[in-house]
Structures are given as structure tokens and as C-alpha cells.
Write a protein that binds this DNA or RNA. Structure first.
Lengths: 236, 236
DNA sequence: AACTCAATTATTTTCGAAACTTTGTGCTTC
DNA sequence: GAAGCACAAAGTTTCGAAAATAATTGAGTT
């Protein structure tokens, strides 16, 4: 699922980048998550082919995949739109995600080996390095934080054996990212709180304490969602 | 998910069929579920364009959607394959489906109105009409039974408000259909048992007894899956 | 025989022109 | 002025040729 797009730097004409197909899929999804395209906005092919510099067919393929993932809606003959957002949907997605994540982490704790544990510690450290920064710097590197935050949560459940469980968990995580976007400008005290929570979750997990880890994750997620919900309510 | 094709005009040359795109998606999925293409089989564009009489692009779009749904796998540059099946996967899918279905039916029972109830009774009756047939006839109309069985289970949860819950429930139901295929030739006594179970589930649901309905559904599904699992184990 | 590596064949992936649909606009009629 | 109709404009959907990539074959070498 994660196609890493590496900097197409000015080196010799080496072909490091992903194929245009999965590349445009990733960029498009990222643009929707980051609200470059507003919810319910129409996605016209004419505009898109220029923006992403790909053919109509390639774009169409990416868009129909995003439709399966729930990021866009499609109506035959009328084209594609960015899926709308709503408070009700956020509540449901949060609920489902917590269910998946807590279940996955219990299974991971039961099945995880030393490599899994070591990776969690490593990835958590990478997250710390950004979260520990002075607030202004931390905000400047928000995109990077999003990525590392994702990697941290992914590492926690990586040892879970259920492929479908992980798949659905990832789907819901991706959807939550869209809503997390509205809390981008959270306060410094909130940021500090998260910093601590991540450490506690990491510790409970490597201590193989499934109940604590699950409970902490639930609080951690619900907290963020509640704040997003409040902001969403103020806006409309 | 179900694209209803409404006749765009009342003209003589009426176009009753779905647009090529969603049409080929449906046919392809159906062919995979019915094992026309065996698990892990390669899906070559040259063959497919002839079989379905559509262009490469259209086919590609359908295939990448089926990839998101988990029916096919895709490897960049190497094309598409039918997703493999395994006993482990069946166990996981069954588990997840039961979780979704029982949760959905409780919510439906809490929220359902008179129309919802009436529809369940109607759809159950349509199912009965096939299940009550002499066994040989019942088997001849197996495809029709699959459709009505799906409609029955869909009607039960139709009043559930969670869009994502229903979505994931449908995903898992579709996946189960693939495995149900192997139990197509179940015995007459098994068929009779299902006949009774469907009636009991229907009755518990319209009686608004969520606990009973959920418990019965769990037994009902797990029973079928266990039988499929046995057959799957014998084969490989 | 086992191992290159270059040429050839098979297959996938991309792209945009052409066909088709929907939406918008202005004219006609009642 | 509203409703209907015809035509133009805007947009989407389909298709297959062409480019790019992967797999195969086979001659030459160790």
C-alpha cells in the first residue's frame, strides 16, 4: 500500500520513482487528505491531467481506486467528486478504527518477536525526534510528523497476523487522516500530551501488556477525534 | 456499490444494460466468485478483451477496483492475478463478517421502521420459494438462490445507520461468497437446516430480539464456513 | 552442463483522439 | 412568463495504437 515517492533529484537519469500509475494514486490521495481539493468538489479530467501530467486513462484508474477506498464518489456519466465529510462519519470511523486497532495490537502483542519489538522502539524514537522539537519547528515539519506518526502506529500492529484486519485498519486510518487535518493547528499543550501518550503506548506494548496498550490507544484516538469533532462543529 | 442503470431516455433504441465499465466489473467479479478463473490464475489483457469485448483501459479500471476489494492481486509491471484462497483466510473472513453482521443487525433492530420489517418478510418469502423446492430443482436454480440469499441478509441489516459498517460487512460477504462456492453441492439435509435457520433469524429480527438474532446468525454463518473449511482441507 | 548476455517475443502500461452524455443557452410557442 | 425544444458547449467514457517493460530463447563462453 505505501508507495514511497522518493525525491526525483537531479542525479543522472536513474529511474528511482514509482510508475506513474501508483504515483498519481498516491499524490491524489494525499491531496484529498490535505484538503487541496475540498470535500464535495468536482474533479474534472481536464484540470487533473494538467495538474498531474498524466493521461485520462491513468487518472481514471486512480480515481476509481480512490472510490473503492471511499475518498471519492462516482456517478456514472457525471464524473468524480471528493467524498463529503461529516461529524457523523467521523464518529463512525473513529469507532471502527479503535475496534480494529485495539484488536490488532492485542494480536500483535501475542505474536510479535524481537524484531517487531525493536522496530517499535526505533520508529518511536524517530517520532520523538520531531515531537520533541520546539513548537514552531514542530509545526513546520507537520507533513513529516504525519508520516512518522503513521509509521509508529503501523509498527505497533505489524506483527498482527490478520491480513484483512490490518487492511481495514489501514483503510480507517487513512480516512481518519482526512479529519486529523482539521486539528493540524492544535495547541502546544496538546502536542506535549501526545508526546507522552505515544511513549506510554510504546512502553505498554513492549512490556506485552495488551490491556493497557489497548486502553491507552482508545483514549489517545478518541481524544484527537473529539477535538476534531469540536472544530468541525464550529465550522458547519 | 450497486449501480442501478436507469433508462436515460424513453426512446425506441433503449439502452437497458449498464454502462460497459460497471458491467464488466460486475461480470468479472462474478466470474471470480464462481471460480471461472481459478485462484492465483493470471489474468491476461489479450484474453480478457476478447472474453468481455471491451477495451484494455476499461478492463484495467475494473481490475484495479477488484484489487482494492481484494479479489485480485496486482504487481506493477507483471499484471493481475486472481487472489489466492486459503483456510486461514476463510477463518479470518468468517470471523470479521460475523462481527460486522451481528453488530449491524443489532443497530438495524434498534433503528428499523415498519417498511424495513415488511421488506424483510417479503424478501424472506422470496428466499423460501426457492429453498422450499424439491432438492433437484433447488440445485438447478442455485445462482438464483445465491442472489436471494444475499438479498435476505442485506434486508436484515438495511436499517443500520453506519455506512462504513455496512460497507465492510458487504466486502466480507462478497469474499465469503467465493468460499461458499465450494459448498455448492451440500446435502439435502443441510439445505433443510438452512431453510429453518433463515426462518428463525427472520422471526427473531421482526420480534426485535437482537440477542437471539445475533446468536443465530453467528451459528448460521459459522456452520457454513466450517463445512467449507472441511472441504477445503480435503482438497489441499 | 552452467552461465552470461543480446536479440526476440510476449505482455503490460500509458496516452489522447473519437464517441457518447450531460449541461447550458437561446429560440419558439402557448 | 413559463414550458418545451433544438442546438451548442462542456465534460465523461471508451478504445486501441504506441511506448515501456518483462520474459524467453539461443548462441557463445567458461
Amino acid at each position: 500500500m505505501q508507495i514511497r515517492t522518493l525525491p526525483a533529484n537531479g542525479r543522472a537519469a536513474t529511474r528511482v520513482e514509482a510508475t506513474t500509475g501508483s504515483n498519481v494514486l498516491t499524490r491524489l490521495r494525499s491531496d484529498i487528505v490535505n484538503s487541496e481539493f475540498k470535500p464535495s468538489a468536482r474533479l474534472k479530467f481536464a484540470d487533473m491531467t494538467k495538474r498531474y501530467d498524466v493521461g485520462i486513462g491513468t487518472l481514471r484508474e486512480a480515481l476509481s481506486q480512490l472510490a473503492s477506498e471511499g475518498f471519492v464518489t462516482v456517478e456514472a456519466g457525471k464524473g468524480f467528486k471528493v467524498a463529503p465529510v461529516s461529524a457523523e462519519e467521523l464518529v463512525e470511523i473513529t469507532d471502527l478504527f479503535i475496534g480494529f486497532e485495539t484488536r490488532a495490537i492485542r494480536e500483535a502483542i501475542a505474536a510479535g518477536d524481537d524484531d517487531w519489538e525493536a522496530n517499535i522502539v526505533a520508529v518511536h524514537h524517530r517520532l520523538r525526534l520531531i515531537e520533541g522539537l520546539p513548537w514552531s519547528e514542530r509545526m513546520e515539519r507537520h507533513t513529516e510528523w504525519v508520516q512518522r506518526h503513521r509509521e509508529f502506529h503501523e509498527a505497533l500492529v505489524a506483527a498482527c497476523q490478520g491480513r484483512w484486519l490490518l487492511r481495514m485498519r489501514t483503510m480507517m486510518f487513512d480516512q481518519l487522516d482526512r479529519y486529523r487535518f482539521v486539528t493540524k493547528n492544535a495547541s502546544e499543550s496538546q502536542g506535549r500530551k501526545k508526546f507522552d501518550e505515544h511513549r506510554e503506548i510504546m512502553q505498554a506494548t513492549v512490556a506485552r501488556d495488551g490491556d493497557s496498550a489497548a486502553a491507552m490507544i482508545e483514549r489517545h484516538i478518541r481524544d484527537t477525534s473529539d477535538r476534531a469533532l469540536k472544530i468541525l462543529g464550529q465550522q458547519g
